[in-house]
């Protein structure tokens, strides 16, 4: 058997992988450092606002991913 590392096999798959990675990048250093200010936005600390931007981002990306999977044979 020829061994391999699993990779996305379509443009949509690659796009989803990049979006997942981008979301993870948004929550860690160095990005989190840009929001490390004692300032408020909408009455909340910048880091709190950024946290919930990531939460919403995860939700939206998975919604998009589900929609994309519906159009492929990969679902279930």
């Amino acid at each position: 058997m020829k061994h391999f590392v699993v990779r996305p096999r379509s443009r949509g798959g690659w796009l989803l992988t990049v979006l997942f990675m981008a979301l993870i990048g948004m929550g860690i250093w160095p990005v989190i450092g840009w929001f490390n200010q004692p300032k408020l936005w909408l009455g909340l600390p910048w880091i709190a606002v950024w946290t919930y931007v990531i939460v919403i981002g995860c939700w939206v990306v998975m919604l998009i991913a589900n929609r994309w999977l519906k159009g492929t044979s990969d679902d279930d």
Binding site: I32, L42, P45
Partner: peptide, 26 residues
């Protein structure tokens, strides 16, 4: 908003890393 406005004025160290305890760096 009122809670965090007061915190920003009186204890701004709670609004950033590494936090008030200084032990949660990047």
């Amino acid at each position: 908003a009122g809670v965090f406005e007061r915190l920003a004025a009186e204890h701004p160290e709670f609004l950033t890393l590494p936090g008030a305890g200084g032990d949660m760096g990047f």
